[in-house]
Amino acid sequence: MIPNLTPPPNGPEYVAYYRVSTKKQGDSGLGLDAQQAYIAHFYQHKHMIAAFTDIKSGKAVTGRLELQKALALCKLRRATLVVAKVDRLSRDTEDALQIYRELEGRLESCDIPNLDKFTPTLFMAIADRERVLIRLRTQQALVELLKRRGQWRRASEPFQNGLATQKANAAVRENARQNRHNRRAITLIGRLRAEGCTYAQIARQLNEAGFQASRGGLFRAEQVRRLLLRPLDELPPENG
């Protein structure tokens, strides 16, 4: 309910509005005590007729009951609405400008001297960028905290017990063995090819000699051709 106040003896009237967010992160960090201190400092000699406080996020103004009461009182008494920072009024530029228009310019903020309809756009853009920077700093701080606690990119179980290393070493040894096997096969293929054998004939001879393809199966003509085209310098020495 709007208080029934008598007209002041002299001078304009002011109504203070405070907002504290329920969120712990991503806000301006200006608590209720700080907002009250700002307004008390700059308006200590002004005729303050009422104060209203919302505990709401700054995303929308329509759901803030105390703000609506403050606006109604300002319209009734033609008082000026005062906030400690413009983002305490709203974090949406259009909402702030709408309130400015509703009050016919009777809106003041401690962080913006001589507030007009253009300055909220600039200051709220700066406030929005600062919230982004705060969020980024918070995320980076969390990453650093997890790193210090040893919880960032912790090795999986195979890496912790050494099984992954054993498997990797076994794979390296098998690849080396297979490459040496391929070198001997290439030598034989080259000799048979020089004698005029077809790829199919060479494949048959490789299979009969006990050679195996890279995946353990029998050689086919196409595999013989690919192996013959492979440069020898890509393979380790036979005694390597």
Rank of each mutant, 00 (worst) to 15 (best):
M1E: 10
I2T: 08
T6N: 15
G11C: 07
P12E: 05
P12C: 07
Y14C: 06
A16F: 15
A16Q: 01
A16C: 07
Y18M: 03
R19N: 15
K23C: 04
K24N: 07
Q25D: 13
D27L: 02
D27H: 13
D27M: 02
S28P: 07
L30A: 11
L30Y: 12
Q44N: 13
Q44S: 12
Q44P: 06
H45W: 05
K46C: 08
H47Q: 10
M48Q: 01
I49H: 09
T53D: 05
I55S: 10
K56T: 07
G58W: 02
G58V: 00
G58Y: 03
E66M: 11
Q68F: 02
A70P: 10
L71Q: 04
A72N: 14
A72W: 14
L73A: 12
C74R: 06
C74D: 09
R77Q: 14
R78K: 13
L81D: 00
L81N: 02
V83A: 08
V83I: 05
A84E: 11
K85R: 12
R88H: 10
S90Q: 00
S90P: 02
D92R: 15
T93E: 08
E94T: 13
A96M: 11
E102Y: 08
L103S: 06
R106G: 10
E108K: 08
C110R: 06
P113G: 08
N114T: 01
L115Q: 04
D116S: 08
K117H: 08
K117D: 11
K117W: 01
A125N: 14
I126V: 10
R129G: 03
E130Y: 07
R131Q: 13
V132R: 08
I134Y: 13
I134F: 09
I134T: 14
T138K: 13
T138M: 11
L142W: 11
E144D: 01
L146S: 08
G150I: 02
Q151H: 13
W152K: 01
W152Y: 08
A155S: 07
A155Y: 04
E157D: 05
P158W: 00
Q160H: 14
Q160F: 08
A164K: 04
K167T: 02
A168G: 01
A170V: 10
A171Q: 14
E174W: 03
N175A: 07
R177N: 14
Q178R: 15
N179H: 11
R180P: 03
R184E: 09
I186Y: 07
I189F: 07
G190P: 03
G190T: 11
R191L: 10
R191C: 02
A194Q: 14
A194V: 01
C197P: 00
I202S: 04
I202W: 01
R204K: 06
E208P: 04
A209N: 15
A209K: 15
A209D: 14
A213C: 03
A213L: 00
R220D: 09
R220A: 10
Q223L: 15
L228S: 11
L229G: 04
R230K: 15
R230T: 14
D233A: 13
E238Q: 07
E238C: 05
N239I: 00
